[in-house]
């Protein structure tokens, strides 16, 4: 009888590109149990899930619409995690950017659209940065764990927004808890007529390129990656860890803020308290699936956008609850984490 042994050694190179595929496959097998619970055939469901978004123009574009904020939050998380700064606050920083955009959007009525949109992007980036600066400064100045503070601040900004929406900003006409609609000049132009795809997608792609450029082509990026790989060694190399992490945290917050700007200026045109519903957390999935590589995170974000769109069509055609999308995305995250660990093992005959 053949005997096998699992030992710790890098797995063969040919296996690596197969690992993400393996993860997707395992995810589909695991989650098919839940589709069965919803009284649907898993094969039919997954066929719909992955193909129906491609059957018509609207839903194909919708994949990119859904992916736009995820590309940004994915890029935001990537630069932070790659630098060893565990920013779990993309969700809150997104809301900070959205808050700024909703306010700026109402005061730029008479402006030229180019100026109005630039003001919104800049304001959103700064707002995300400011919100991210609280945990970042606490981390580098007082050594306060950033995971807890970023998580807590996610809730705090939602309370602030809720207070604004239920108080001064409450829609005077409808009485709904939503901010006044932004001026026409502040609305992001559509990339494709008669679709929801907006300027934010271009912003997202530019940010991915920027993050890639910073991380792999600049001395700052080298210091960031060094700090992410091992802070002791990086310190020994002469890297100023505190400064590097601070810059990474602020950039991360600013980019997450841009995601909020896009949702306000491109999709909703006002601020609501359910604006995000977890886009910041899904950004962590995108960054992890992408292996903390900016392009990888971008591709992962588009795939997550496909999963979101697919969940909608499965829900409509087969009556499987739309939350299947959440289950598939989070299972994929965990399975991918597990499969990535397999990279460090190989099976050998003994």
């Amino acid at each position: 009888m053949l005997k096998f042994r699992i030992e710790r050694a890098p797995s063969p190179v040919w296996m690596r590109p197969l690992l993400p595929l393996l993860a997707v496959l395992i995810t589909f097998v695991v989650t098919s149990v839940f589709i069965l619970l919803a009284n649907a055939n898993p094969l039919t469901a997954y066929y719909y899930y992955l193909t129906s978004p491609f059957t018509n123009r609207v839903s194909m574009i919708e994949i990119l619409v859904k992916a736009t904020p995820l590309i940004l939050t994915g890029a935001s998380v990537t630069i932070a995690f790659a630098s060893g700064y565990w920013n779990i606050g993309a969700e809150g920083q997104l809301y900070a950017g959205a808050l700024a955009a909703a306010w700026i959007g109402t005061v730029v009525g008479g402006w030229h659209p180019v100026l109005a949109i630039l003001a919104m992007l800049l304001g959103g980036f700064l707002a995300g940065m400011v919100w991210a600066s609280i945990p970042a400064l606490l981390k580098v100045k007082l050594a306060v764990d950033e995971v807890v503070t970023t998580l807590l601040l996610n809730s705090v900004i939602v309370f602030i927004i809720s207070a604004l929406l239920n108080g001064p900003w409450r829609d005077p006409v409808s009485g709904w808890p939503q901010s006044p609609t932004i001026a026409d000049s502040a609305v992001f132009p559509k990339l494709i007529p008669r679709s929801r795809l907006h300027l934010g997608f271009v912003v997202a792609v530019v940010m991915v390129l920027l993050i890639w450029f910073i991380l792999s082509k600049t001395p700052l990026g080298l210091r960031m990656r060094a700090s992410g790989l091992g802070q002791e060694a990086a310190r020994f190399m002469g890297v100023n860890i505190q400064r590097t992490m601070l810059i990474a945290a602020l950039l991360s917050g600013g980019i997450a803020g841009l995601a909020g700007v896009g949702e306000v200026a491109g999709i909703h045109f006002h601020l609501i308290d359910a604006l995000s519903n977890g886009l910041g957390y899904t950004g962590i999935i995108a960054a992890t699936l992408g292996g903390l590589n900016p392009f990888g995170a971008g591709v992962a974000a588009i795939f997550l956008g496909l999963l979101d769109t697919g969940a909608q069509s499965v829900s409509r055609s087969l009556g499987v609850p739309i939350f299947l999308g959440n289950v598939v995305q989070s299972t994929l995250l965990l399975v991918t984490l597990g499969v990535f660990m397999l990279q460090n093992y190989r099976i050998r005959r003994v």
Partner: peptide, 27 residues
Amino acid sequence: RLGVNQHVSGLGTTLLLTGLSLFLFRV
């Protein structure tokens, strides 16, 4: 068992259990 980063596996667990609860509630 797998020694995955605790931040990410914890958040993944939260996302999974939350999604699963919402899904099963609708089922």
